[in-house]
Each structure stands twice: as C-alpha cells, then as structure tokens.
Amino acid sequence: MSEVVELERVTRKYNYSTRAGGRGTKGEVIALADISMTISKGEIIGLLGPNGAGKTTLIKIISTVLLPTSGSVKVLGFDIVRDAPRVRQRIGIVFGGERGLYGRLTVRENLEYWSAMYRVPRSEACKRIPRLLERIGLASQEQTPFDRLSKGMKQRVHLARGLLNDPELVIMDEPTSGMDPVAAREFRELVRELCLDGRTILLATHDMVEAERLCNRVALIDHGRIRGIEDPKSIGQWLTAYGRIEACVDDCDVSVEGFSEIPGVSQIEMIGDGWVRIHTSSEEATASLMRLLVNSGVTSVRTSRPSLEEVYLQVIGDRGLTV
C-alpha cells in the first residue's frame, strides 16, 4: 500500500458560546472544510498556513486526538475513529516547545515512560533508547532532567520520543519553533534521515525555509481549506506560469514602461539597485523580452522563480497579525 494517509471530505467544526452583557451567544466555527488529500509512503509533506488556518486541527485529527465532524480519515489503511488503537501503534507525534515531556524527569526516564505508553516491550526499549539517544546526539545527556536541556536538545528528545515505537508515520507540529538557526538545521537533517529510513512525515510549520528545504510537497492551508498542494520547487508556477526575468537596467538606454507593451508580460516591479523583475505568462513573451533586453544593451540578466514565501504571501495574503 502506498497511501499512508487518506483524507476524504474531512470537516471539523467547533461549537462556541460567549456571554457578554448578560446575553449568551452560541455559534459554530468551521476549522476544516471539506479537506481531501492523500499522503504517500516516504513523503515529507508540509502543512503551511497562518495561525488559525486549521493545521493543528488537521494534525490532531490524523493523530486520533480529535474526532472529525464529518468525512473519513484513514492512516495506513485504518480508520482513525473505528481503528484508533491500531493507528496509534503506528504513528509518532513530535511537538514543538516545552510540552509533551515531564520536565523534572531525566531524558532516560521520560523515554522509558513513553516506551511503555507505546507498548514497546521493555527488553526492546532497553536497546532502542540508547540507539535513539545516540542518533540524536544526546547519549551523554540521558541522566539530565528534561527541564535543564537547551531548546534544541529538548526538541531532539521530542523527536526521540516520537520514534520510540518505530512509527511508519511521524507527525510533527512546529518542531523547530523557537530554535536557533544552527539547531534548526541539525534538526532538519535528522528529519531528512528519517525519510531515508522510509518513514512518512507530516510537518506543520510556519517556516517557509523549512518547508522549502524539507518537503516533497507543500499544502497551503487557509481558513480550513487547502488552497493547493505542490512540490515546493514548482509551487512558483502558481504565481507565474512561465518565468520571471530580472535585469539590471541602470546604465542602459531602455524604458521599463516599454516592457509592458510586450504581449504576455504580466507584471513589472523594481527590486532595487537598478534591477527590474518582469513576470511573463508565455514562452513567446519570454523570448520577445530577452530580445528586447539584448538589443537595448542590457548585459546583466538572470531568471528566478518565486520563493515559497512569495507564493504564501500571494495566496494566503499578508495579514500582519490578523488571524
């Protein structure tokens, strides 16, 4: 079986009630609306979206913590409602931040406890824990209380905990949140290694760089809906179908306004230091534009693709702090 996660028309609603000025109001918030997607074996798929987009709700549902209001979710062929115990044996969960482990217990004590919670036989846990600690580079810290570890180390312990039951699917919720760049890079390296082991990884993140570097596919999620799922390398096509050409027009006899007269040029923007970025929507437009640039004596030309961040801002919108 190649599909590890199958979501079919999953909807999740939350009821809420507020009391203001002596009057109570009740309502319903749709956190996820009609989500359908599949995740294949060995993929690293990123869930990208702003706060309140529905990423964590989706992760909670797949990890059996939360029930969907409607729709069906299968993990490794098991229904997450009817076969929750079987699903739980096969998945690992990795949080970001301080939560999910007992702060006063040592790293080893935490991992022993969670091995038992994942029904790993004691003899197997005795072998697996040192191996995992070695792998995450914390073998020397096994007797250190979890609270005394640095943020990056804590995150690696979370990862070890998520791998105790040798899961086929690892679910990660903002795993590098708050980590410094070096620790985050090391953590990503570990995640990449997990994928090489043949595991499937579902990663909810705010971090565009993380999504771009790690994921085979990225799902942009907003207002409870998936706005699109794409390989991060080709996701730029959502913004521009063919390409973007950047040219230094500083010392050349060329009119930037003239570019807009070429059929197929969709957008022109000045990006500083005398450079202009021209978006084209057809191959002919790109060819015409290149001819014009060369004829005008432009010698510094480069092509680029939109970054994931640009796509994100374009698709989701720049909302500042608005949720």
């Binding site: 998945i91 949080f95 038992a116 919670m117 994942y118």
Partner: peptide
C-alpha cells in the same frame, strides 16, 4: 494538573496505552 501543564495528556490520549490504567 501535571498532565495539562506538561502537555502530556494529549500524547497519552494518542498513545496505545490506556490512560485509565496509568
């Protein structure tokens, strides 16, 4: 209080062990 404060309640719920036995 501990399970809530440490955020471990949710992971236990999502683990194969039975919270009631623990």
């Amino acid at each position: 209080s501990y399970e809530r404060a440490y955020g471990t309640l949710e992971i236990i719920v999502a683990a194969p062990a039975r919270f009631t036995w623990v």
